[in-house]
């Protein structure tokens, strides 16, 4: 498979170089919103959605910047675009589907400070992906984030019922879990690489 093959781009963002487990992006929500399965699921969906939107916005903005030779403003523009994209998404969802808004609403502000979104925009720029590739890349990244979040949530719910020793309770155990998950995902390295 070629590195710019769409399937490969998806798999790469999804499991091979998972944003959370290989790049440590979006760790705050990963640790913060993974205590319950349904919140994790909603958070994953919301993130995936915002990723799609902001990745496309970033693609457009980058085209403009390159056109006018203003690459040094890239970071400032990206962060501004992402923040406003989240706002727009929030408003749109509120209008279109109040039900969805109720489910996702509280997570949207959290997503603005999620470095995975900005990371996605930056990575796709560095990798010089075209429009379609950006789309697939962000879908993969979002799906990967959701997968990691769901796995983590499942494990944490299970461990809620465990007699965890007092010193490892709390964040330490979450990091160890994330480490083991990360170890697990190393098995997917090289997938489709030949």
């Amino acid at each position: 498979m070629q590195p710019d093959d769409l399937t490969f781009i998806f798999l790469n963002a999804f499991i091979i170089n998972n944003f959370v487990l290989a790049f440590f992006l979006g760790l705050c929500p990963f640790l913060g919103v993974s205590a319950k399965l349904d919140t994790a699921w909603n958070m994953g969906l919301a993130t995936m959605f915002v990723m799609l939107v902001s990745s496309l916005c970033a693609y457009g903005v980058n085209m403009l910047l390159v056109e006018f030779n203003l690459e040094f403003l890239r970071l400032i523009c990206y962060i501004a675009v992402i923040a406003s994209a989240v706002q727009l998404v929030e408003i749109t969802i509120k209008k279109v589907s109040p039900e969805l808004f109720r489910a996702l609403g509280i997570f949207l502000p959290l997503i603005t400070t999620n470095c995975a979104i900005l990371g996605l925009a930056l990575f796709q720029t560095f990798k010089e992906y075209d429009f379609l590739q950006c789309l697939v890349y962000s879908a993969g990244a979002g799906a990967g984030f959701t997968l990691a979040l769901m796995l983590m949530a499942g494990l944490r719910v299970k461990l809620d019922l465990a007699d965890v020793p007092s010193i490892s309770r709390g964040s330490a155990i979450s990091f160890m879990l994330a480490g083991i998950l990360s170890l697990t995902f190393m098995g997917f390295a090289g997938l489709g690489g030949h």
Partner: peptide, 16 residues
């Protein structure tokens, strides 16, 4: 090994 570890990780979800 990795497949089983992944299965372990997914087993609470599968259970749920």
């Amino acid at each position: 090994m990795y497949a089983i570890l992944f299965g372990n990780a997914a087993s609470p979800l599968i259970g749920a």
